[in-house]
Design a protein around this nucleic acid. Structure first.
Lengths: 218, 218, 218, 218
DNA sequence: GATGAATGAGTTTTCATTCAT
DNA sequence: AATGAATGAAAACTCATTCAT
């Protein structure tokens, strides 16, 4: 999925372990978590972590990219099943929520945004969402004034970590919230929305990042 | 609103400045932000900050309490207007969202929960929300299977910081999201929710805290 | 001598101690010496050192500036005594060598050069040296083809640390070397120099830095 | 020139590359430079470097020995041409300066001195220099009070790295400095030297090491 | 024999907290 | 009471050295 030179088998395994540990700890404790703790949970030395990811930002960036990849796969998968436009969004959100534990998309500020891979993923996600929205509108099952940015906002909200809740409880709350939200997306009797949709240029490169979940504890 | 001994005028002003600066920075950078930075933004010396708040937890706790106070005021205000059950939730969320910039309710772990003031506020909020829900159900404008915990989840989602978006953009996204969500709360044609409501004991002391917005950046 | 806001008395004292310790250790062990060691020799905590000098370069830069200041004072002092052109250079080198223990002028690369204070000092030194040279030439006691850059080179050579020699031995070697060199500067029977003088633009901002002494041990 | 067991062709090539890279980097950045950087500039893996040189000291020692070898060859070569005592020193310094880029003779502390090869080289160099001095004095072209230690000091000064200057500029400055110095060695009108010559026992095992050039940057 | 990945101790740097001014 | 300087413990980061491939 990356275009880097192939790593030795053990190096690749360590890399994966580091990313998995980082994802967990970022969700549990925020991206300010001690990198040594990540290394320890991954079962590697601190030096190994730094060899793969020269600084905290590089590690965050990769975790974010992986998360965007998961989201894109879910979106494209939903797009392929558009024969059933009414159920497409339901399946999309369900899939994303199912994988929420692998999503750490902190608003990491500038560094993340500079990365062309991130921008490419964001665009691809927006494209897929717009395709889904168009099909839903055409089928008359979606209100017209909802944008891809709204969907991303909803997904971001549903996927943010709730580390102090048991996994099942957090997931139940997210699923229930999204079920209500999706019910609200149906066009019947929809009142006008209270604020104009931010244009893509308003949201610009920002919104996709908002899909991120934010963390931090003390 | 608190019952502390009166402070000298300048001391009070410093205290307010510190809390405002802490709120901003907690939302922008997480509760792990350097306390020196808070002191600097507040325009006071580090020593002054420590005089008012003996440690980080005390500062977080006060910011959280202030946030809960805002939420409770909004909920009680909505409860008083229950003559119009259909509009009560709309007004409630609108008020909370309007004041989202003053809400920093991080899951600060144990310390916050120990504080009787926090628990009292949480209970009061739950009571008000249940009152609103009961009225709405009675008026037939709300689906029956929604709980106070669901509402708290929705509010938490809508109020989390989006520091990389312009203030208006973030607010527009939150308002639009909640508008759809509230529309989805109408009972007509509502499909069953996909997960059973976490019971208060499932959520226990946790959910109220989830009303907090989480933070952290790099 | 600096234009910074006045420091508290204790802070100033610590600052001076840090600079003195840094100078000693830079000369003994090179500018790569552990900053903790500098803090320890200065009798302050590591944090104090970092408060005054945010990174190694800032500390090196200040020590370099102080060294340039010493050199400039010696040069201007010599310039004032130009009534005796024959002895001016002798007194200049003698003064600089006397203070060699306070001179740590490592080639610290870009950072130092960017500093306007450094450049100003370099220019002032060059001006003074050119004045001395002009007077010496006019008096017929100096060969014509020697430049200020040559003098700086000679001073740099004489002042470099020789930490493995007793102080007196190192100073004796430097004094003897410069005495021979100065004898060689007299115009009688001087053979042409074997390489054309680097023009100021060749040497540019570099030569003055060469006045620095280089260090390093293992 | 060494009596080590023969290496495979590629191993020998790697060894040479490592020494050349080490020499360059020691001069540029000091002997504290990261060994990984040396391996990288040599185009070999870290493991290969360690196979050849078990630790940093072993590598430094060999570079130093190679440098002393160059100096000794220059001195013995000058000694052979003593038919022209007046030009002998000129040729000697010119040769050493020509090869200054290959000279890295850091005061590596104890370890170097323990090596019998280093001590042997130092003695041989002193012998040759004393031979040259004796011939020059006998021919009346050299002042009497100059010692071999003085010459070593001069050579050390002229050969120290000036990594921030272009190679030609640094060499020009060194050649010009030594030309003046050598002119200053003529006995005519020489004023007494300002400090007594350090006796060999004062300088002891130290001076020869001072032939080394010192390094370190930030 | 060469490679470069992993390790962990050492160094740098930050920052919560205390305290002299 | 306010300030900001000093401290030192903790976290980030580097790099010499070892070792599996």
């Amino acid at each position: 999925m990356t275009s880097e030179p192939p790593l030795r088998a053990d190096a690749r395994r360590n890399r994966e372990r580091i990313l998995a540990a980082a994802c967990e700890l970022f969700r549990e404790q925020g991206t300010a978590v001690a990198l040594d703790d990540i290394a320890q949970r991954a079962g590697v030395g601190a030096g190994t972590l730094y060899r793969r990811f020269p600084d905290r930002d590089a590690l965050i960036r990769q975790v974010v990219i992986d998360g965007f990849g998961i989201c894109l796969a879910a979106a494209e998968s939903a797009l392929e099943e558009m024969a059933d436009p009414a159920g497409a969004l339901d399946r999309l959100f369900r899939r994303v929520i199912e994988q929420r534990e692998r999503l750490v998309l902190p608003l990491a500020g500038g560094p993340v945004l500079q990365d062309p891979r991130v921008q490419q993923l964001q665009h691809a996600i927006l494209d897929a969402l717009n395709g889904i929205l168009a099909a839903g509108r055409a089928a008359g099952v979606l209100r017209d004034d909802i944008t891809a940015e709204d969907l991303i906002t909803a997904a971001a909200m549903a996927c943010r970590p709730m580390p102090h809740l048991p996994r099942e409880t957090g997931e139940a709350l997210a699923l229930r919230h999204i079920a209500v939200y999706l019910h609200g997306l149906r066009p019947e009797g929809a009142p006008p929305l209270p604020a104009t949709a931010p244009s893509p240029s308003d949201v610009g490169r920002h919104v996709a990042l908002e899909q991120q979940t934010r963390q931090e504890d003390s």
